[in-house]
């Protein structure tokens, strides 16, 4: 799990162009949206594409997004549970 979390942090920094940010700057349990990392709706779309492109996971119900993308850890957990 920790390995996947680290990998996700690197990918998030890359796809969202979080310049001047290192993986260790992102707390695995902090909220990605709002007060945590401060991501917005366009970032959410980028993360949906990241899951599909890099992990082959398609989010069928958009309502699940809020839970899946709460933090890097919840993303990693969802990937672990759903990756074929």
């Amino acid at each position: 799990m920790e390995e996947l979390i680290q990998k996700l942090k690197v990918e998030i920094i890359e796809v969202l162009n979080l310049e001047e940010m290192e993986p260790e700057d992102i707390d695995s349990d902090d909220p990605l949206f709002g007060e945590g990392l401060g991501l917005d709706s366009i970032d959410a779309l980028e993360l949906i594409v990241l899951l599909e492109k890099n992990y082959g996971i398609r989010i069928e119900d958009p309502k699940d997004g809020r839970k899946i993308f709460f933090s890097v850890r919840t993303m990693a957990e969802y990937i672990t549970e759903n990756q074929k």
């Binding site: 366009i42 980028e46 594409v49 492109k53």
Partner: peptide, 13 residues
């Protein structure tokens, strides 16, 4: 590159 899939919004916008 992605065979018309996985298109992200930022560069399109």
């Amino acid at each position: 590159d992605n065979d018309e899939k996985f298109l992200t919004p930022t560069s399109f916008i």
